[in-house]
Computed example of a mutant assay.
Amino acid sequence: MNDLDELKRLVTGHTVVTEPDTGDGPVLARIVADAGDEPGSWPHEWIRAGEAYDAAGEPLAALQCYLRGRFPFVDGPGRKRAQTRAVEAFDRWRRGRGIEPEAVAVDGVDVRVWTTGLSRAEPRPLLVVVGGLQSPKELWAPILPRVADLGLAGVVAELPGVGENPLRYDWETPHRQLSAILDALADRARTAETYLLASGFAGHAAILAALRDPRIRGVVGNGPPVDTFFTDPVWQAQIPRSTRDTLAHLTRVPAEEVFEHLRDWPLGEDDLRSLTVPLAMVTARRDEIVPPFDFDRIRCATPELRLVEQDDVHGTPTRLAEVRAWSLREVLRMWPGADPADRARLDAEWAAVR
């Protein structure tokens, strides 16, 4: 059972990248229970709102509601129904926009991703986008047409255990999944020129992947844990309960044991110093999940770092347009073949939303 007040406080950051205004106040006011799928429950009311947007021909607004209905993770039939509706809504929206589904084999298990710009005849450099612990691929996939317009092939995936991903979230699987995606797309993208855009905990996996896979040429992240988050029990005691419970769900470890399970996950200073590709990072001054020391460790130990700090909480939910423009701008700064005109447009977009 989730803390309903906490969910209402945190869910506004769970927003599709196009940011339609869904007017959350009336929906939140109707919600009086976390579990179940009856009127007044968290999943039911978000699905009800999504269905209204679907009926009005606004699939992205519907998608946002369905994604919020499965937040923070699928724990019963109501949230499962919301998750299914989210995938269906995105599938309707993406048709005719150059976005295609793909199944990638990871350890013999098929993992679904969304792709764009793949071509055997004219392969492009690849941008892989992965959301955090509570971010199904449909949360980020609306960015794919923009990725294609910038001259890149794109793929949006989700961390193990999130959304439709059937794998278990552990130390090894997330970064091996990233390499498996590159293997699967090597005949239709220039995977030796791969860039990663990774939010939250996916940033931890992205750095690990960049340390092990020479095809990865740069990483852009937003608030990844690297060190103290995994080892400091005082800090762990104050993080949102929904984060702890999501970690327990994804790792398949009891909630009271999950932090002990994560104790060996830190990236050491030697790891960060040995990173040979560019790293660009968004940090939040009021991050309630990742401790400040983790950002200090990245800042001090990473040899090639570009950093922007936001006065916000984890995931920078109030600065999404700015963070999106800055992140794509940093990808183009890392990619030597980027069109200078595209770089200039993203520079201007970032300056405007700041």
Rank of each mutant, 00 (worst) to 15 (best):
residue 140 W to P: 02
residue 329 R to N: 13
residue 81 R to C: 01
residue 273 R to I: 06
residue 66 Y to L: 01
residue 312 D to K: 06
residue 119 S to I: 02
residue 227 D to P: 02
residue 101 P to H: 04
residue 164 E to C: 02
residue 252 R to P: 14
residue 104 V to N: 11
residue 82 A to T: 07
residue 204 H to P: 05
residue 271 D to W: 06
residue 273 R to M: 12
residue 127 L to H: 11
residue 331 V to E: 11
residue 6 E to A: 07
residue 103 A to T: 07
residue 171 W to A: 09
residue 297 R to M: 15
residue 338 A to L: 04
residue 262 L to I: 01
residue 291 P to A: 00
residue 274 S to V: 00
residue 313 V to T: 15
residue 96 G to L: 07
residue 157 A to Y: 08
residue 323 V to L: 08
residue 24 D to E: 15
residue 164 E to D: 12
residue 29 A to R: 13
residue 88 E to P: 05
residue 262 L to Y: 13
residue 177 Q to D: 11
residue 40 G to R: 06
residue 186 A to P: 06
residue 354 R to K: 13
residue 230 F to P: 14
residue 335 W to E: 15
residue 271 D to E: 13
residue 214 P to E: 14
residue 269 E to M: 04
residue 98 G to P: 09
residue 219 V to S: 06
residue 140 W to F: 13
residue 120 R to Q: 14
residue 129 V to L: 12
residue 77 P to D: 14
residue 55 A to I: 01
residue 318 T to M: 10
residue 15 T to F: 06
residue 47 I to S: 07
residue 224 P to M: 01
residue 38 E to Y: 03
residue 190 R to W: 08
residue 189 A to V: 05
residue 88 E to C: 01
residue 38 E to Q: 13
residue 238 Q to D: 12
residue 155 V to M: 08
residue 43 P to Y: 00
residue 223 G to Q: 12
residue 230 F to H: 14
residue 327 S to E: 11
residue 123 P to N: 08
residue 284 A to T: 14
residue 250 L to P: 04
residue 308 V to G: 02
residue 249 H to V: 01
residue 167 L to V: 03
residue 160 P to T: 01
